Simulated assay, not measured.
Amino acid sequence: MKNSYSKNQACKLQSGTKIVGKWHSHPYQIIRPLGAGATGSVYLAESAQGRVALKVGMDSMSITSEVNVLKHFSKVQGQILGPSLLDVDDLVTPEGTFPFYVMEYLKGTELTEYMQNKGAEWLGILMIQLLGDLDRLHTAGWVFGDLKPDNVLVVGPPARIRWIDVGGTTLIGRSIKEYTEFYDRGYWAQGSRKAEPSYDLFAVAMMMINCAYPRRFEKQGEKPLLFLKQRIEEKALLLPYKDVILKALQGKYTDAVEMRKDMVKAVSKSTSYKHIPVKEKTKKNVQKQTKSSRKSNKLKKEKKSSYFIEIFLLSSFLLLAYILYLFGQMM
């Protein structure tokens, strides 16, 4: 085997490297890196069952903890919260033995990218689904911890959020073991880093803000909450959810179910029809129109208006049907 990893680089694997598990003897060929975190590196790999995501770690305890979380996810009846766990083994190298696990490779789009050119209702729909998943996670006794767009993907159709990295998942009551400042309530002086449902709900609010500000921003001034409120009010995408986001930022939700209910109400309001008036023509053009042409244009406008109303009603019906479908999947 090609020596393409080192202890100091968390067992860095090069594209084309072939590895075989010590205990199960399952072979894998590395295609490319997918990402790296505090507990290890994730790679896209080819296996006998097809493409998989393979995470190699430095610390056996951290990897064991993540494996246990994935096992818990698989026990949630009727719901798939994270990627399916496929294999757990050790990689023996001249530099030492590294623990690794293999999981389902999820192909999708990063949340902030997916939300580009999408309507506000889509942000609400995806957050409703995410909050349903978080409720199941919290009920099982865990907090996601490092919840951010980088750790989720939108897959489908139908569009659905799936978790792809559970490295920050922490038992409720303990200290958050992994976090990213922008989504961390401690950074924004809005609470502690104790693992509790409200910690994840704060991160959900910041994920929504991140969808409106893909490049993120840093804390400014001595009143972080006021600063965030101003940023929310500057983006049309966030206005339908302003009250929900602010409540989550202030820790006013005790569980995901409560926030989800308010999000459902906000989505129903965000889909209400708003008439956008057509620009008036200049006086010069109006004066040139004959009586008959005015009548003809009027009929065309009426037909066009009727057409758009029909399209709107159909779109609203389809959106409502999709929301009901998602609720059915989350029950």
Rank of each mutant, 00 (worst) to 15 (best):
V76P: 01
P83Y: 08
A38Y: 10
Q77D: 11
Q14N: 05
L54G: 02
L70E: 05
K55E: 08
L106Q: 07
V20T: 11
G57Q: 10
Q29Y: 04
G82F: 14
I19K: 02
H24I: 03
K18F: 04
G16V: 07
V42A: 13
S47N: 07
A53N: 05
S25N: 13
V76E: 15
K55N: 04
S25V: 05
V20H: 04
K55M: 14
P99T: 07
V92N: 08
S25K: 14
K107R: 11
L34Q: 04
L54Q: 03
S65V: 05
E46D: 11
D89G: 04
Y105Q: 05
Q14V: 02
L13R: 02
L44S: 03
L44R: 07
Q14Y: 09
L85K: 02
V67K: 07
Q79R: 15
Y43L: 08
K12M: 11
P33E: 15
I63L: 09
V69K: 05
K107E: 15
M103N: 01
Y43W: 12
T39G: 06
K55D: 06
P83T: 12
G16A: 10
M61Q: 15
A45C: 12
G35Q: 09
Y105G: 00
V52L: 13
M58T: 04
V20R: 09
Y105T: 02
Y105W: 08
D59G: 04
M103Q: 06
A38D: 11
G16C: 12
T97M: 15
S62H: 14
L86E: 06
G50R: 10
Q79Y: 08
V52R: 03
L106G: 00
T17W: 05
P94F: 12
D87L: 12
V20P: 00
L81C: 05
A38K: 07
A38W: 11
G37P: 01
G78R: 13
N68Q: 13
F73R: 01
D87C: 05
G82E: 10
G21N: 06
Y101F: 15
K55F: 12
K71P: 01
V42D: 08
L70K: 00
M61F: 13
L106H: 00
G78Q: 14
S41H: 06
P33Y: 11
T64Y: 09
R51N: 10
I80K: 08
L85A: 07
I31R: 05
A36Y: 08
V69M: 14
A45D: 12
L91T: 01
E46S: 11
K107D: 13
G78T: 10
L70G: 00
Y28P: 02
I19D: 04
A48M: 13
Y101E: 12
K55P: 01
V56A: 09
G78S: 12
A48W: 10
S74H: 10
D87R: 02
H26T: 10
S62F: 14
V102N: 02
Y105A: 03
I80Y: 07
A53S: 11
K107H: 11
L70N: 01
S25C: 10
P33H: 08
L54R: 01
V52S: 02
L106I: 06
V67I: 15
I63C: 09
Q29N: 04
S84H: 13
K107A: 14
L91Y: 10
I19Q: 06
G57P: 09
R32H: 04
L81A: 03
M103P: 01
K75M: 15
